[in-house]
Amino acid sequence: MRHTIAVLVENEFGVLSRVAGLFSGRGFNIDSLSVAPTNDEDMSRMTIVTRGDEQILEQITKHLNKLIDIIKVIDFTDETAIEREMALIKVTAEDAARAEVLRIVDIFRAKVIDTTPKSFTVEVTGAPSKIDAILDLLRPLGLKELVRTGSVAIGRGAKGWKG
């Protein structure tokens, strides 16, 4: 089962490798991982997308909590969080295909951020499933390059989450 885990960490060097080493050393999967400082510059926040059964997920969150530099761990499994991802997509666009690409970009409320006579570079934001969907439509037109940020997630509601 796919899980999205938010991890608040001390903003110190080596934290990323501790987390990555934990996953590789214990054979846990990482589908995606994104990390950047938070509004409190002493802390960074990671969003890790992983998969595993209940027992594995319990071990993952326990092991993350065990790392000294990790301040807080939340496993967003239910409908309590909003998840977003961004992708930059370079797609072949010549002749009639140019209009088709623009139509798709419009439907997905994406943006063209660079263009040449032969290509468009598209920026799209949304839930990972939305990114998958636009990719499915663009792929037949000639997908040249793709870069995704991996998910970031935040809890719903008024309550903020700090260390």
């Binding site: 060097f13 490798s17 050393g25």
Partner: peptide, 14 residues
């Protein structure tokens, strides 16, 4: 040595 001992220490510091 920080990298080498990361998986076999409880914690390490540079």
């Amino acid at each position: 040595i920080i990298g080498i001992t990361r998986p076999c220490t409880k914690h390490n510091f540079l």
